[in-house]
Design a protein around this nucleic acid. Structure first.
Lengths: 129, 129
DNA sequence: TTTTTAAATAGTAACAATTATCGTTTTTAC
DNA sequence: GTAAAAACGATAATTGTTACTATTTAAAAA
């Protein structure tokens, strides 16, 4: 089996992700890390972000457009996506297990999670219009 | 302003989408239509599917992997995604406006919709394992 | 320590999904 | 019918992401 080995780059990627609340894309993280480590490769960023997601140390967020985003905050919460500027922010709402059960009751298979994105216009963009 | 003109292809694409309940990808629709109209172009399918979504006559579904899927059923409902086979099915659950209001109350911006995907293992895949 | 191993890397090529371009065809208004 | 513009098919380009490969690095064994 494959055993994990320490890597300075992975450490750095994880720290970068944990240190921000803006749900960065792989490229955001790549650019940020490159300021101190100009030789890091975008492939390394993708590889490690996906690894962190597999290990359950990060979450991946996908919307219908643009690149995937990553979230280092593991506490269960929902997300809000601004249709104007594309920003993604956290909503301090606890995802309800009850909703899973409700869905379970009208679905032949087994449901174990759900993912909800709220869409609208963020505070900043409301001001602009 | 741009006025819409009739197109046989768009009609066909819309009919194809409305006629199925499996949330097809652009390529699924392309392949299906090509049986009767071998000259249709994949670009035309993409262009018209996106147009239909813009016009509010179809919905686009995006998950973290694989191509986007389309849904011609406009009645509000949720979706269930099987993590084993990737199939997408409808859940006869009415999305609650209340959830939008709840989210609204803890968000600076304006929320007008939400999108929920349930994840799990479908009936067919449960049998196989 | 050195040696050995396997994991991880950087750099780059390849890939999948989608969009843009462009010359031609089709729709529709006059 | 004629003309304007919308839509087409074919294909090139773009975007986001993954795969490949030779090299470097971490950690276990000698």
């Amino acid at each position: 089996m494959k055993t994990l080995k320490y890597s300075r780059q992975r450490e750095c990627i994880k720290n970068c992700l944990m240190g921000r609340r803006d749900h960065p894309t792989a490229d955001h993280i790549y650019l940020s890390i490159r300021e101190n480590d100009p030789n890091i490769s975008l492939g390394t960023v993708y590889r490690n972000l996906n690894l962190l997601v597999e290990l359950g140390e990060a979450r991946k967020l996908s919307f219908g457009y643009g690149p995937d985003r990553f979230d280092g905050d593991l506490t269960p919460h929902y997300h809000f996506v601004c249709r104007e500027c594309g920003s993604v922010s956290d909503l301090p709402l606890k995802p309800s297990d009850q909703l899973n059960h409700l869905a379970q009751s009208c679905c032949g298979g087994r449901i174990d999670s759900h993912l909800t994105y709220f869409y609208g216009v963020c505070q900043d963009c409301l001001k602009k219009v």
